[in-house]
Write a protein that binds this DNA or RNA. Structure first.
Lengths: 112, 112
DNA sequence: CGGAAGGTACGACAGCTGTCAAACTTCGAC
DNA sequence: GTCGAAGTTTGACAGCTGTCGTACCTTCCG
């Protein structure tokens, strides 16, 4: 499902409507430390970041996987800028759908 | 670690100090819908509940497992009252360690 | 054009974990 | 004492998912 029309190589990823996302999906996304790290960086930066600028202790393909999960969970929006992919936190929308949740999570200090 | 002194069959489970618990552990506990359901019931009830009074769509052994995970994550406190086991949400302590988190999670409506 | 940079897609694989049944333990009631 | 109720323990198993390498695709730049 969520098949975007095939009109070539499909460089525009599909983003779910946030209202279709369950708390379950959000928690599954955020339970992974690497994904939480990504969201934390976006949250702290308060702006969009290219995949490349967020350095992660995993391979490129794994990173792609994590971004995909975050996108499917409605947490980020992705689009291309040249060869690099930009990531934007969907803060306002997410706040509407899950009031207070992102903030409560981000405010927690993580033990390093 | 966290070995309670062995003085018989050990009916008193050990409870971790909440300060030793990581956000990771909490999220891992709360990502499971059944465990979230347990916590929700305790949160709504605002009092302790016996395992038996929380009916869950899983076998007894699986239920035991879930309670165990919640206990290890510092979310509940357990003790025996006769043959039944009581469960209490560790609300205040948890609030101190993870301010705003439990509430933010519990306030979210879950799609049934 | 040709190459390099930045990502994606696809298998494959290992480890985790939620699940159950069966056997056992403890406590209360009769 | 014996029986049942309530949970626990153990072992087994299946499914999920985070991980990687490799091959591939776009886009930019010289």
């Amino acid at each position: 499902m969520a098949v975007a029309r095939r009109s070539g190589p499909e460089r525009v990823p599909s983003h779910p409507d946030i209202r279709e996302i369950s708390l379950q999906q959000v928690l599954e996304a955020l339970v992974d430390p690497i994904r939480r790290r990504i969201v934390r960086e976006l949250y702290a930066a308060r702006r969009e970041l290219a995949c490349g600028t967020i350095d992660l202790p995993v391979s490129k393909s794994t990173a792609t996987h994590h971004f995909h999960v975050l996108r499917e969970a409605g947490l980020i929006r992705q689009y291309y800028a040249g060869t690099s992919r930009m990531n934007a936190l969907r803060s306002e929308e997410f706040e509407q759908a899950f009031p207070g949740l992102l903030r409560a999570l981000m405010e927690q200090r993580e033990r390093e």
